[in-house]
Protein backbone atom coordinates (compact mmCIF):
# COMPACT_ATOMS: atom_id res chain seq x y z
CA UNK A 1 0.00 0.00 0.00
CA UNK A 2 1.55 3.24 -1.13
CA UNK A 3 -0.37 5.29 1.40
CA UNK A 4 1.26 3.38 4.24
CA UNK A 5 4.68 3.64 2.70
CA UNK A 6 4.53 7.42 2.38
CA UNK A 7 3.60 7.62 6.04
CA UNK A 8 6.91 6.00 6.93
CA UNK A 9 9.66 7.79 8.84
CA UNK A 10 11.18 9.27 5.71
CA UNK A 11 7.86 10.72 4.65
CA UNK A 12 7.46 12.49 7.97
CA UNK A 13 10.95 13.91 7.75
CA UNK A 14 10.37 15.27 4.27
CA UNK A 15 7.07 16.78 5.29
CA UNK A 16 8.91 18.86 7.88
CA UNK A 17 10.48 20.97 5.12
CA UNK A 18 8.29 23.83 4.13
CA UNK A 19 10.24 24.87 1.07
CA UNK A 20 13.09 23.82 -1.18
CA UNK A 21 15.54 26.32 0.33
CA UNK A 22 14.93 24.87 3.75
CA UNK A 23 15.53 21.34 2.51
CA UNK A 24 18.67 22.40 0.68
CA UNK A 25 20.08 24.12 3.75
CA UNK A 26 19.33 21.03 5.77
CA UNK A 27 21.26 18.83 3.34
CA UNK A 28 24.19 21.24 3.36
CA UNK A 29 24.34 21.29 7.16
CA UNK A 30 23.86 17.55 7.46
CA UNK A 31 26.78 16.91 5.12
CA UNK A 32 28.83 19.66 6.78
CA UNK A 33 29.41 21.27 3.43
CA UNK A 34 31.05 24.64 2.88
CA UNK A 35 28.19 26.70 1.50
CA UNK A 36 30.55 28.67 -0.77
CA UNK A 37 31.73 25.48 -2.45
CA UNK A 38 28.76 23.18 -2.71
CA UNK A 39 29.56 19.79 -4.28
CA UNK A 40 26.64 20.12 -6.63
CA UNK A 41 26.61 16.49 -7.81
CA UNK A 42 26.28 15.13 -4.28
CA UNK A 43 23.66 17.66 -3.20
CA UNK A 44 21.62 17.20 -6.37
CA UNK A 45 21.61 13.45 -5.88
CA UNK A 46 20.50 13.72 -2.24
CA UNK A 47 17.97 16.35 -3.12
CA UNK A 48 16.39 14.20 -5.82
CA UNK A 49 16.36 11.19 -3.47
CA UNK A 50 14.45 13.23 -0.93
CA UNK A 51 12.12 14.44 -3.64
CA UNK A 52 11.27 10.88 -4.57
CA UNK A 53 10.01 10.37 -1.05
CA UNK A 54 7.71 13.31 -1.36
CA UNK A 55 4.95 11.76 -3.42
CA UNK A 56 2.44 12.37 -0.67
CA UNK A 57 2.95 16.12 -0.68
CA UNK A 58 0.49 18.52 -2.20
CA UNK A 59 1.23 19.54 -5.78
CA UNK A 60 1.49 23.23 -4.94
CA UNK A 61 4.21 22.49 -2.41
CA UNK A 62 5.93 19.99 -4.64
CA UNK A 63 6.00 22.53 -7.46
CA UNK A 64 8.51 24.70 -5.64
CA UNK A 65 10.64 21.64 -4.92
CA UNK A 66 10.61 20.64 -8.57
CA UNK A 67 11.76 24.08 -9.70
CA UNK A 68 14.72 23.77 -7.35
CA UNK A 69 15.47 20.29 -8.67
CA UNK A 70 15.57 21.70 -12.19
CA UNK A 71 17.83 24.52 -11.01
CA UNK A 72 20.23 22.06 -9.39
CA UNK A 73 20.40 19.88 -12.49
CA UNK A 74 20.93 22.96 -14.62
CA UNK A 75 23.82 24.10 -12.41
CA UNK A 76 25.29 20.61 -12.43
CA UNK A 77 25.23 20.42 -16.21
CA UNK A 78 26.77 23.88 -16.52
CA UNK A 79 29.59 22.87 -14.24
CA UNK A 80 30.35 19.82 -16.37
CA UNK A 81 31.10 22.07 -19.31
CA UNK A 82 34.76 22.97 -19.68
CA UNK A 83 35.67 26.52 -18.66
CA UNK A 84 38.06 28.19 -21.05
CA UNK A 85 38.69 31.44 -19.20
CA UNK A 86 42.01 31.51 -17.44
CA UNK A 87 41.20 34.65 -15.51
CA UNK A 88 40.28 33.35 -12.08
CA UNK A 89 38.18 36.31 -11.02
CA UNK A 90 36.06 36.01 -14.08
CA UNK A 91 35.67 32.29 -13.53
CA UNK A 92 34.52 32.92 -9.98
CA UNK A 93 32.01 35.47 -11.13
CA UNK A 94 30.55 33.04 -13.56
CA UNK A 95 30.27 30.23 -11.07
CA UNK A 96 26.84 28.81 -11.90
CA UNK A 97 26.28 28.17 -8.19
CA UNK A 98 26.65 31.83 -7.34
CA UNK A 99 22.99 32.84 -7.50
CA UNK A 100 21.81 29.82 -5.54
CA UNK A 101 24.44 30.40 -2.85
CA UNK A 102 23.34 34.02 -2.51
CA UNK A 103 19.74 32.92 -2.03
CA UNK A 104 20.73 30.29 0.51
CA UNK A 105 22.82 32.76 2.49
CA UNK A 106 20.00 35.29 2.51
CA UNK A 107 17.52 32.68 3.68
CA UNK A 108 19.95 31.31 6.27
CA UNK A 109 20.34 34.81 7.70
CA UNK A 110 16.63 35.17 8.40
CA UNK A 111 16.31 31.63 9.64
CA UNK A 112 18.90 32.52 12.26
CA UNK A 113 17.08 35.77 13.04
CA UNK A 114 13.88 33.74 13.48
CA UNK A 115 15.75 31.58 15.99
CA UNK A 116 16.73 34.69 17.93
CA UNK A 117 13.14 35.96 17.91
CA UNK A 118 12.05 32.56 19.19
CA UNK A 119 14.44 32.82 22.12
CA UNK A 120 13.01 36.26 22.94
CA UNK A 121 9.54 34.78 22.70
CA UNK A 122 10.48 32.02 25.12
CA UNK A 123 11.71 34.51 27.70
CA UNK A 124 9.02 37.09 27.26
CA UNK A 125 6.25 34.55 27.71
CA UNK A 126 7.52 34.15 31.25
CA UNK A 127 7.25 37.85 31.96
CA UNK A 128 4.00 39.34 33.19
CA UNK A 129 2.69 42.86 33.49
CA UNK A 130 -0.14 44.40 35.45
CA UNK A 131 -3.57 44.20 33.89
CA UNK A 132 -5.42 47.45 33.30
CA UNK A 133 -7.35 48.61 36.35
CA UNK A 134 -11.09 48.60 35.72
CA UNK A 135 -11.68 52.02 37.25
CA UNK A 136 -9.05 53.80 35.19
CA UNK A 137 -10.22 52.07 32.06
CA UNK A 138 -13.75 53.48 32.13
CA UNK A 139 -13.77 56.90 33.84
CA UNK A 140 -11.70 60.00 33.24
CA UNK A 141 -9.53 60.51 36.29
CA UNK A 142 -11.03 63.88 37.26
CA UNK A 143 -14.31 62.24 38.20
CA UNK A 144 -12.76 60.24 40.98
CA UNK A 145 -12.84 63.35 43.17
CA UNK A 146 -16.49 64.25 42.60
CA UNK A 147 -18.74 65.09 45.54
CA UNK A 148 -22.51 64.90 45.91
CA UNK A 149 -24.68 67.79 44.72
CA UNK A 150 -27.62 69.42 46.52
CA UNK A 151 -30.81 70.95 45.08
CA UNK A 152 -29.30 74.37 45.61
CA UNK A 153 -26.45 73.61 43.21
CA UNK A 154 -28.91 72.30 40.65
CA UNK A 155 -30.95 75.49 40.79
CA UNK A 156 -27.85 77.61 40.43
CA UNK A 157 -26.85 75.66 37.37
CA UNK A 158 -30.36 76.04 35.98
CA UNK A 159 -30.20 79.77 36.53
CA UNK A 160 -27.03 79.93 34.43
CA UNK A 161 -28.67 78.06 31.60
CA UNK A 162 -31.69 80.36 31.62
CA UNK A 163 -29.45 83.42 31.62
CA UNK A 164 -27.75 82.13 28.54
CA UNK A 165 -30.98 81.88 26.56
CA UNK A 166 -30.52 84.01 23.44
CA UNK A 167 -33.67 86.03 22.79
CA UNK A 168 -36.55 85.94 25.20
CA UNK A 169 -38.92 87.26 22.59
CA UNK A 170 -38.78 84.28 20.27
CA UNK A 171 -42.27 83.48 19.12
CA UNK A 172 -42.90 79.87 19.99
CA UNK A 173 -45.55 78.23 17.90
CA UNK A 174 -44.87 74.57 18.46
CA UNK A 175 -43.95 74.70 22.09
CA UNK A 176 -46.13 71.71 22.80
CA UNK A 177 -43.82 69.42 20.85
CA UNK A 178 -41.54 69.14 23.88
CA UNK A 179 -42.90 67.05 26.69
CA UNK A 180 -41.28 65.92 29.93
CA UNK A 181 -41.61 62.35 28.74
CA UNK A 182 -39.79 63.12 25.48
CA UNK A 183 -37.01 64.85 27.34
CA UNK A 184 -36.65 61.88 29.72
CA UNK A 185 -36.26 59.58 26.75
CA UNK A 186 -33.80 61.97 25.15
CA UNK A 187 -31.62 62.30 28.26
CA UNK A 188 -31.59 58.55 28.89
CA UNK A 189 -30.57 57.82 25.31
CA UNK A 190 -27.77 60.38 25.64
CA UNK A 191 -26.61 58.76 28.87
CA UNK A 192 -26.55 55.38 27.24
CA UNK A 193 -23.87 56.51 24.85
CA UNK A 194 -21.91 58.78 27.16
CA UNK A 195 -21.01 57.56 30.61
CA UNK A 196 -21.00 61.11 31.85
CA UNK A 197 -22.38 64.42 30.59
CA UNK A 198 -22.08 68.02 31.60
CA UNK A 199 -25.28 69.59 32.95
CA UNK A 200 -25.12 72.26 30.25
CA UNK A 201 -24.98 69.69 27.48
CA UNK A 202 -28.58 68.71 28.23
CA UNK A 203 -29.71 72.13 27.07
CA UNK A 204 -27.80 72.18 23.80
CA UNK A 205 -30.13 73.36 21.05
CA UNK A 206 -32.83 74.49 23.45
CA UNK A 207 -33.62 78.15 23.03
CA UNK A 208 -36.76 78.79 25.06
CA UNK A 209 -37.55 79.06 28.72
CA UNK A 210 -40.23 76.45 28.21
CA UNK A 211 -37.73 74.00 26.76
CA UNK A 212 -35.31 74.56 29.62
CA UNK A 213 -38.02 74.02 32.23
CA UNK A 214 -39.28 70.83 30.57
CA UNK A 215 -35.76 69.48 30.33
CA UNK A 216 -35.06 70.36 33.95
CA UNK A 217 -38.24 68.62 35.10
CA UNK A 218 -37.25 65.59 33.07
CA UNK A 219 -33.86 65.60 34.76
CA UNK A 220 -35.40 65.79 38.24
CA UNK A 221 -37.65 62.86 37.40
CA UNK A 222 -34.69 60.76 36.22
CA UNK A 223 -32.76 61.57 39.39
CA UNK A 224 -35.82 60.65 41.49
CA UNK A 225 -35.96 57.29 39.72
CA UNK A 226 -32.30 56.78 40.64
CA UNK A 227 -31.20 56.29 37.04
CA UNK A 228 -28.54 58.97 37.15
CA UNK A 229 -26.77 61.02 39.77
CA UNK A 230 -25.26 64.46 39.63
CA UNK A 231 -21.82 65.21 40.88
CA UNK A 232 -19.64 68.26 41.20
CA UNK A 233 -15.88 68.53 41.45
CA UNK A 234 -15.95 71.57 43.76
CA UNK A 235 -18.28 74.41 44.65
CA UNK A 236 -19.45 76.45 41.66
CA UNK A 237 -17.73 74.23 39.11
CA UNK A 238 -19.55 72.38 36.36
CA UNK A 239 -22.16 69.77 37.28
CA UNK A 240 -21.67 66.38 35.81
CA UNK A 241 -24.29 63.72 35.15
CA UNK A 242 -23.26 60.13 35.71
CA UNK A 243 -25.36 57.11 34.93
CA UNK A 244 -25.90 54.81 37.90
CA UNK A 245 -25.88 51.05 37.89
CA UNK A 246 -29.69 51.18 37.71
CA UNK A 247 -29.54 52.79 34.30
CA UNK A 248 -26.86 50.47 33.02
CA UNK A 249 -28.90 47.51 34.24
CA UNK A 250 -32.15 48.83 32.78
CA UNK A 251 -30.55 49.60 29.43
Amino acid sequence: MTALETDSGLGVKVGAFEGSLELLLHLIQENQINIYDIPIALITQQYLETLEQMTSLKLSVAGDFLVMAATLIHIKSKMLLPVYETDEEEALEEDPRHELVARLLEYQKFKEAAGTLESYETIWRQVFVREALLATASDPSEEIFLGDVGVHDLLKALQKVIERLPNKDILTIHNDELSVRDRIGFILSLMEHEKSLLFEQLFDGIETRYGVVVTFLALLEIIRLGLIKILQVENCSALRLMSTDNLVGAG
Binding site: G19, Y107, F110
Partner: peptide, 23 residues
Protein backbone atom coordinates in the same frame (compact mmCIF):
# COMPACT_ATOMS: atom_id res chain seq x y z
CA UNK B 1 8.90 33.40 12.99
CA UNK B 2 10.88 33.37 9.74
CA UNK B 3 8.36 35.61 7.98
CA UNK B 4 8.27 37.95 10.96
CA UNK B 5 12.07 38.12 11.01
CA UNK B 6 12.13 39.07 7.33
CA UNK B 7 9.49 41.77 7.83
CA UNK B 8 11.17 43.09 10.98
CA UNK B 9 14.53 43.58 9.29
CA UNK B 10 13.48 44.58 5.79
CA UNK B 11 10.30 46.56 6.38
CA UNK B 12 8.44 47.93 4.63
CA UNK B 13 8.28 45.22 1.98
CA UNK B 14 5.80 43.41 -0.25
CA UNK B 15 4.53 39.87 -0.03
CA UNK B 16 6.47 38.99 -3.19
CA UNK B 17 9.67 40.21 -1.56
CA UNK B 18 9.03 38.02 1.47
CA UNK B 19 8.32 35.04 -0.77
CA UNK B 20 11.51 35.64 -2.74
CA UNK B 21 13.57 35.14 0.40
CA UNK B 22 11.77 32.14 1.83
CA UNK B 23 10.92 30.55 -1.52
Amino acid sequence: LETLAIIAYKQPLTRAEIEAIRG
